[in-house]
């Protein structure tokens, strides 16, 4: 798993709910690790059999790859879902990711025509949920907000689905977004 963060997020702090101790204990008891008298195993970064020993046959390699790919469905179930703020009947949808969320929500509070806007925060980047395209394409106007120069999220979305943004708000001067800037850009 790769946890994607950004400077603005990693320099902030927030409270979280208690971790699920019961779930943790259950995972701990299921682990196949040394010192518990279980059957010895090799954890292997090469394609391997059930005991962990390398396999190099074409058929076995393909089988291992298919097994990995079959996990995508389950990962999609577990990966963080999108957050949709506002009405799904709004005229305009703001699409963004990462630490822009706070500034966007603040900006929307201040907007005169706030009912016109909904905001979709994408949290699971890969595998990318195909449902995201249905959500975005249900809106007439689509506005992208990203705190980078090259619209990285747009590149990702376009590589996987048909999506066209009506407006792009990008900031890349080494600073996070301020709500006033977003408000101004939306009204522009």
């Amino acid at each position: 798993m790769i946890l994607l963060s950004d400077k603005n997020l990693s320099e902030s702090s927030a409270n979280t709910k208690d971790f699920n101790k019961e779930k943790e204990e259950k995972i701990e008891s299921q682990k196949v690790i040394p010192g518990k008298g279980q059957k010895i195993k090799l954890y292997n970064s090469y394609e391997h059999d059930d005991e962990g020993f390398s396999v190099e046959g074409a058929e076995e390699s393909k089988k291992a790859m298919d097994l990995r790919l079959s996990k995508v469905e389950k990962i999609l179930e577990a990966i963080p879902k999108v957050n949709l703020y506002g009405s799904d009947r709004a005229k305009k949808l703001i699409v963004s990711w990462g630490s822009t969320k706070g500034a966007i929500l603040e900006a929307l509070k201040e907007m005169e025509n706030k009912e016109d806007y909904a905001f979709l925060q994408i949290k699971g980047m890969w595998p990318l949920d195909p449902k995201i395209s249905q959500i975005i394409n249900a809106f007439k106007e689509k506005i992208l907000v990203e705190n980078n120069a090259t619209a990285q999220l747009e590149t990702l979305l376009k590589s996987q689905m048909t999506i066209g943004f009506t407006k792009k708000i990008l900031k890349y001067d080494g600073r996070p977004f301020f709500p006033e800037e977003i408000k101004e850009a939306l009204n522009d």
Partner: peptide
């Protein structure tokens, strides 16, 4: 692959 022990390759 040649040793029998707990391992990580």
């Amino acid at each position: 692959d040649f040793v029998k022990a707990w391992g990580v390759h």
